[in-house]
Structure formats: structure tokens, C-alpha cells
């Protein structure tokens, strides 16, 4: 069924990748220093969750998606000076 070409991604996987792309795109608009910072934080967060969360745990993934979208909106609106706030949020979640 044409699956031999690319790995088929589920809808939720596409959403996650799209969110990740959104973060990376938004990071471009920040200063180079902050950009590197944002990218490393975001990348670490996505990878950590990809490792630790069961891929069938849709409720949790959907919750994280919603939260990530909100954080992305914040990152889009506030200027890079206020990056530290989103930084705190991310480190907060690491305590859980």
C-alpha cells in the first residue's frame, strides 16, 4: 500500500512534529544567543518526552501538545527578553 517508501506517521505524530517545527521557526526570529538557547531547550524537551512517554498514552501526549501550543503562542508574542519565563516553565515540568 505504498508504505514501503516513507514511514507512515499517525495524525498525532504529525501534530507533534508540526509543533516542533513551529518552535524552531519561532526561534529563528530571536537573537542568535537566545535562539540557540531556545532550540536546545525545546529539542531536549521533545526528545525527553519522546523517550519517556509511551506512544499509546494519547491523553498525556494530547495534553503536552496543548500545553506546547500555548507555550509556542507565548513565545511568538513576547519578545526574546522574556524568554526566561518559558525557560522556567520547562524546568518546572522537569520536576514532575
Amino acid at each position: 500500500m505504498g508504505a514501503s517508501r516513507a514511514q507512515k506517521l499517525s495524525g498525532i505524530q504529525k501534530q507533534v512534529l508540526s509543533l516542533y517545527r513551529g518552535f524552531l521557526r519561532t526561534a529563528r526570529s530571536k537573537t542568535p544567543e537566545n535562539r540557540v538557547h531556545i532550540e536546545s531547550l525545546v529539542s531536549a524537551e521533545f526528545r525527553r518526552n519522546a523517550q519517556s512517554i509511551d506512544r499509546k498514552n494519547f491523553l498525556h501526549i494530547e495534553y503536552l501538545l496543548r500545553r506546547g501550543k500555548k507555550q509556542l503562542d507565548q513565545l511568538k508574542t513576547v519578545d526574546s527578553v522574556r524568554l526566561s519565563s518559558s525557560n522556567v516553565e520547562i524546568s518546572d515540568t522537569q520536576k514532575q
Binding site: K14, L17, R21, L24, R25, S43, A50
Partner: peptide
């Protein structure tokens, strides 16, 4: 992995000054 692929495509976009659709 798929996250790496997203990163690669984003870097390519920047290097070539293009925009790849989702």
C-alpha cells in the same frame, strides 16, 4: 529520527532561503 528530520529540513530551508511546506 523524525525530530532529526524536521531539524534537517529546517536547516535546509535556512541555507537555501526557501520554505518547505508541511
Amino acid at each position: 529520527d523524525s525530530l532529526d528530520t524536521v531539524e534537517i529540513v529546517m536547516t535546509l530551508e535556512e541555507e537555501f532561503g526557501i520554505s518547505v511546506e508541511e
